[in-house]
Design a protein around this nucleic acid. Structure first.
Lengths: 187, 187
DNA sequence: TAGGCTTTCCTAGAGGTCCTAGGCAAATGA
DNA sequence: TCATTTGCCTAGGACCTCTAGGAAAGCCTA
C-alpha cells in the first residue's frame, strides 16, 4: 500500500482549504481523511485530536492574516495605513471565510499566544502614525480590533443584508469615523 | 410511564440555560434529553432537528437582549442612551455567554428576521438623540453594532487578556470615542 | 544487501451524536 | 366510555471521534 505522504502541515493546509469550501464547522477528521483517500484513524499519527487540528488551522490563519497586514501597512502611515490594514483584514475574511472562522473560534491561549502577539504588534504598527503611546495606544488597538472584527463578522453572518443601504458605503464611513476618532484621541 | 411535560419552549429555555453553563457548542440534543431524563428520540416531536433547536435559542436570546436594551434606553437620550444600550449588551453577553453565542452563530434569516428587525429598531431608537437620518443613521447603527459585538466577543474570547491594561478602561474609552464620532457625524 | 528500526497506514472496535420509523400508552374530548 | 391525539418509547442506521494493536514501507547500518 503506497503511502499518502501526510504530515501535520499538509493536513492543516488541506483542512484550512476545506474550511473555506464547506465551512469551518464542517471540517471533520473523517472528511479530511476522505480527502486524502485514507482511513480516519491514520490521521491520529499526525494530529493529537480534532481540537488540535482546529487550533493548527487557527495558527495558520493568524499567520497568513499577519503576513497580509504587514504587507498592507508597509510604507504607509496615518489614514493610509489604517485603511490598508482594515482592508487587508476584510479581504482575508472574505476570501477565506473558513480560516477566518478558525481564528475566532479555536484559539487556544497557550498555542496561539505567539501568533496573537505578532498580530497585536502589527496593529500597533498600523496606528504608529497617529502618535499614541500606552496606555492610550492599547485602548485604540482594542477599539480598532473590535470594530474590524465586529463589522466583518456581522457582515459575513448576514446581519447587514436586511437593509438596502450598501455595505460598502457603511464600511467606508466606519473607516472615516475610526480615522477621525484616532486623530482626535485624547492623550 | 409518566410524561415529562416537554414542549418546544421548555426545551429551548433549558437548552439556553445549558448553553450558559457548558458552552453553546456543547449543547446537544442528547445532552438536553439527558437533562429531562428522556431518550433523545423523544425530543424530535418538539423540535425539527438540532439546527432548529439552535435557531430557537438564538431567537430567545435576541428577544431577551432586545428587552434589556429597551429597558436600558427608556427615558434616556444622547450619550446616556448610548452607554446604557451598550452596557445592556455587554452585561447580557457576560451573564449569558451561551445565549450570546447562539445569537451570533445560529441566526437563520427566515426565522430570526422578526427578532432582528426589532433589535435594529431599538438600536435606531438608542441613537435618536444624535439627530441622524437615513442613510447616515444606518451607517451609524452598523458601526455601533460592529463595535459592540466586536468588543464583547473579543473580550469573551480572551483576546484582551494578554495585556495588563484594564479592559474596563478600554471599554469606557471606546464608548467615549463612539459618542464623539456620533456627535460629529456628517449629515 | 540483509537485517533491524522507525514511521505510516491499516483493521477492529467502543462510544457518542443525529435522526427516522413504527409502536404503545397516557391524556383529551366527544 | 371509547376514539383520537399526543408524548415518549425501542430499534436501528449513518456518521464522527479516538484507542489499540498489526503489518508493511522506507531508512539506516553492518
Amino acid at each position: 500500500m503506497a503511502r499518502a505522504g501526510l504530515s501535520a502541515d499538509r493536513l492543516t493546509q488541506a483542512a484550512a482549504d476545506l474550511a473555506d469550501e464547506v465551512g469551518f464547522e464542517n471540517v471533520t477528521v473523517s472528511a479530511l481523511a476522505r480527502h486524502f483517500g485514507v482511513k480516519d484513524a491514520s490521521l491520529y499519527s499526525h494530529i493529537r485530536n480534532a481540537q488540535d487540528l482546529r487550533t493548527r488551522m487557527a495558527v495558520l490563519a493568524l499567520a497568513e492574516l499577519s503576513d497580509r497586514s504587514a504587507e498592507a501597512i508597509a510604507g504607509r502611515s496615518g489614514k493610509d495605513a489604517l485603511v490598508a490594514f482594515a482592508s487587508a483584514h476584510r479581504g482575508y475574511a472574505h476570501e477565506h471565510p473558513g480560516r477566518y472562522a478558525a481564528v475566532q473560534l479555536a484559539l487556544d491561549p497557550d498555542v496561539a499566544a505567539d501568533s496573537a502577539v505578532r498580530h497585536t504588534e502589527l496593529t500597533r504598527a498600523a496606528l504608529r502614525g497617529y502618535g499614541m503611546w500606552d496606555p492610550e495606544l492599547t485602548d485604540a488597538v482594542r477599539l480598532l480590533h473590535s470594530t474590524l472584527h465586529g463589522f466583518v463578522s456581522l457582515e459575513r453572518s448576514g446581519a447587514f443584508h436586511s437593509h438596502p443601504r450598501g455595505v460598502e458605503a457603511s464600511w467606508l464611513r466606519a473607516l472615516d469615523a475610526l480615522d477621525s476618532v484616532l486623530r482626535a484621541w485624547p492623550a
